[in-house]
Nucleic acid binder design. Structure first.
Lengths: 113, 113
DNA sequence: CCTTTTCATTCCTTGACAGGAATATAACCA
DNA sequence: TGGTTATATTCCTGTCAAGGAATGAAAAGG
């Protein structure tokens, strides 16, 4: 299950920054180095982690390597999130009902606890 | 920004398992210990991390502490995901177009040969 | 070929985190 | 009050990941 590598890849703030950079457009390593303010080796290592997690893909262009986002793992995250999103909607719903029927449900005490 | 603690909290597979357990229903610590197969102290420490990240809330019930999911951070994750979801939809769209116009685009040879 | 550019990989050190064992804390009960 | 249950916290240790420095590797160009 590469689910683990996906989460741990995104757990690092620098890597989330890289991912955000690649959301705008594909970029060669040098550009990422400059934008992140990290050293080149460190950036390359982060890129390797992202590659191993399947989050980015590389295209060789002469001496440069152009990195781009791969949307698939993002979709996996989205799928993971789905059941929780339902919970979120339920609680929004409940809030709406409470606001709506403030004096209609004697079982659920209002904010006077 | 508790964004960092949110990600690092969910980076751990045991903690994701706990979160999944709490999605079904709120549970006291003992139940989580049993379900996860971790030791009680380890579980308590994971719960502390989840608490600090705002992912769970505790309610005291006699000697027991009942943990429940807080949907708000999930919504934050969802918001983070949003721009990437757009990317995903774009690529689905592109795929759809390609499948749609297979015989409409003489530039792109179809799957024969 | 030799050099330059661009990037990847090792080596090493340091810091953070996980897990177990033992201990503290708090609530309930006799 | 003393004891039991349920949970949190501390201490200690091993593991793992990040970052810097140095080095390796591949492509382009003279």
């Amino acid at each position: 299950m590469s689910d683990a590598s996906l989460w741990s890849a995104l757990a690092d703030p620098h890597r989330r920054a890289i991912v955000a950079l690649l959301l705008e457009r594909p970029r060669p390593v040098g550009e990422i180095v400059e934008a992140c303010g990290l050293s080149q080796p460190s950036t390359s290592k982060h890129l390797k982690v992202l590659r191993d997690a399947g989050l980015v893909r590389v295209r060789q262009d002469a001496q440069r390597r152009v990195y781009a986002l791969d949307p698939a793992p993002i979709a996996a995250l989205d799928a993971w999130l789905d059941p929780y999103r339902r919970l979120w909607n339920r609680s929004l719903d409940a809030l709406g009902r409470r606001l709506d029927e403030t004096s209609d449900d004697p079982d659920r005490p209002s904010a006077k606890d």
